[in-house]
């Protein structure tokens, strides 16, 4: 999780204009080892390459940092920040965990939503936050995404969404499960209005998010090597007592089985998404 710190936005502009908390102290080790090729990469280099290693490995990335290179500078207006988390079941330890996660991730919840321009094409944008309980979907995530689709339907805007999620948030019980139906309903209404929805599946996209809005895009992109699946690999292994095939539940596996349209490396994503938006532009 240490990389999340290094990949935080450098300044306020990059964070989309939101006043950010005091900058982290420069890390004592200015480099990191790639878990794939085991080479050492300088943090500064990693920033310049959008958090990807020369070997192609994509490091996980904070939502704000992703936003900083995905949206045109100064174009992002964050929406629905007033949706606050609750503890609907008074689940043991949840309140404390939420507060600790807010402190460590410097985010209020697991997704940021807003309007943005991508190479001048206006859209609604959501980006999930891996550092916030691994992007798990509780009522706040569900509510914000639902509101974003309702807003996009009302304003006739396309939606671009980056998913990262361990699934539904257990601590909110059925309230979180129901967010799968709620978000899907809003996606369907947006779709029925003839509007475009592009999803980008990033590492990991699993569980209830896979089984709802992640898989509901008109066009589904994925980052190389991302884990994408429904049931957890370990659970499958334990239940079936079979060894899993090589590359099981990766973006490449999903592409091969027909569930992803294309795998797009992070440095090319903005260009590809802008091209898609351009081809679906309303009117002329």
């Amino acid at each position: 999780m240490g990389i999340m710190k290094f990949l935080r936005p450098k300044n306020e502009l990059e964070s989309g204009g939101r006043s950010s908390l005091p900058e982290q102290q420069a890390p004592s080790e200015p480099d990191i080892t790639c878990p794939n090729c085991h080479k050492t990469i300088l943090i500064s280099k990693l920033r310049a390459s959008y958090g990807t290693c020369t070997c192609g490995h994509h490091f996980r990335m904070s939502a704000r940092n992703r936003l900083s290179f995905m949206a045109d500078e100064g174009s992002f207006t964050e929406l629905f920040t007033d949706v606050k988390n609750t503890d609907p079941l008074e689940f043991p330890g949840y309140k404390g965990k939420l507060e600790a996660t807010q402190r460590s991730s410097k985010e209020a919840e697991g997704v940021i939503c807003g309007t943005a321009e991508i190479n001048k094409y206006k859209c609604c944008l959501f980006i999930m936050e891996p550092a916030f309980m691994m992007g798990s979907m509780g009522t706040v995530v569900g509510e914000k995404i639902t509101r974003l689709f309702e807003y996009a339907t009302e304003h006739r805007l396309p939606v671009v969404g980056f998913t990262v999620s361990g699934g539904a948030r257990m601590q909110e019980g059925l309230f979180s499960l129901m967010q799968m139906a709620k978000t899907s309903g809003a996606v369907k209404r947006h779709s029925d209005a003839g509007l475009l929805y592009v999803t980008v599946l990033t590492d990991p996209t699993t569980g209830g998010v896979t089984a709802s809005f992640a898989m509901e895009g008109d066009i589904i992109l994925a980052e190389p090597g991302a884990t994408v699946g429904f049931a957890g690999a370990r659970v499958i292994e334990q239940t079936t007592r079979k060894s899993l095939p090589k590359g099981f539940q990766t973006a490449e596996f999903m592409l091969e089985h027909g569930f992803v349209d294309a795998i797009v490396a992070r440095p090319s994503q903005k260009k590809v998404i802008a091209a898609i938006l351009r081809m679906h532009k309303e009117g002329k």
Binding site: S184, A211, V235, T240, L244, H257
Partner: peptide, 19 residues
């Protein structure tokens, strides 16, 4: 919960039903 279910898109199938 199984390999075949994932290969055939368990998540996608559920998502489509919800929608």
């Amino acid at each position: 919960c199984g390999i075949g279910a994932e290969e055939r898109g368990q998540g996608q199938a559920i998502a489509e039903n919800l929608m």
